[in-house]
Amino acid sequence: MTAADDLGKSLAAAGASGAQVVSAQVVDVTAAGVNLDYQGTLLLDVACPDSYRGRAAGDWVAVRPGAVPVVLWRLGPDPGGTDAASIGEIATDAASDLIAISAYTWGTTTPGAGWEQVNTLWTRKDARGVGQLYAQIGSSAPSPTPPATRPPKTVTISPTAADSWRNGRRDDYASNPMQGDWTGGGNRRGAWFYGTGIADACAGKAVSSMTASFTRRAGSGSNAKRPLHLYLHGYTSPPAGQLNLANGPEELLSLSAGGKGTATLPAAWRSALASGSARGLAIYASGSTDYMAVTGGAITIKFSA
């Protein structure tokens, strides 16, 4: 019998006496729904409707009581303004790849004053692979103002490998990166590897931010929200022996069982990863308090130039 089952029965009883909807706070977003804090009890993977979009830890939601609680809707202000801003940002990013032409027409006569005849038309790809056209004309008329230079597009680098180490060697009993020790067999350390992908993506560009996304696997350690102890490492691929840790630890993200979230990497870390002096991310903890298994590890890089 789980905490969710116990609470479901009590909520069902309350529902029978007239309480049809209760409120609870989101602890973490999961692949299947959300983890909820209801009066101090942690409910895992509570299902949500498709209309509950933009889910985030800290949201207050209305929950239908029952043996299997279900989120009905989010409580709070209208998210329309936030959605509009997000859509506008996406549209602006897409439009940056386009070269605007204000009008397109044709006819059997010359177009009249102000038009220039093209002697030769040239084309090329710019540094970002975007097609460009250049018209060579016979006069010295000034060229139109070129479009403003925009920073390179955001890129996401997925790990090429991920694993765990224990007692100085790769752990045959761990299928995902792990931290801590649950059974007394020795503290685990896990890591994500990217080859040279991060530095290659950042070459010649100014990095404005790096974030890393993670999901905590259910069934490893306490269900409660616990921190990831993050480190840098210098490996392009998994070492055969001990995984040595570099800068850290940083507690940039805490997750409950099944929760997923994003950690914003410190400026010094993104500089090290961009330059290649660091190559990837790792986790390590001592003892059972913060024991967990973690998946994900994709790194999203935004550029300012």
Rank of each mutant, 00 (worst) to 15 (best):
I101R: 06
A162W: 07
S158V: 15
G112H: 05
P152Y: 09
T105E: 14
A162E: 08
G107K: 03
P159S: 08
A103P: 00
L121A: 13
Q117H: 14
I157C: 03
A135D: 11
W122F: 12
I137L: 04
D97G: 00
G107Y: 10
A113P: 08
P159R: 04
A162K: 10
T160R: 04
S158A: 15
R124K: 14
I101S: 07
R166F: 04
W106R: 13
R128T: 09
P159C: 07
P111T: 05
P146Q: 08
A127Q: 12
T109V: 10
D126M: 05
A113G: 04
W165K: 03
A113Y: 04
P144R: 01
I137Q: 04
T156L: 02
P159N: 05
S102R: 07
D126L: 05
G112K: 09
G107S: 02
G138M: 02
P151T: 08
L98V: 01
A100W: 02
R128Q: 09
D97P: 00
T160D: 14
Y134C: 09
R128P: 00
V155R: 05
W165Q: 01
V155K: 01
A113R: 10
L98A: 04
R128E: 12
G138A: 15
I99H: 00
W106L: 11
Y104V: 13
Y104G: 05
A148V: 10
P152V: 02
V130D: 02
R166P: 01
P111M: 07
V155G: 01
K153D: 12
A161S: 14
A113F: 07
Q132K: 09
T149Q: 14
A113C: 01
A127R: 14
D97Y: 01
T154C: 00
P146S: 13
G112N: 08
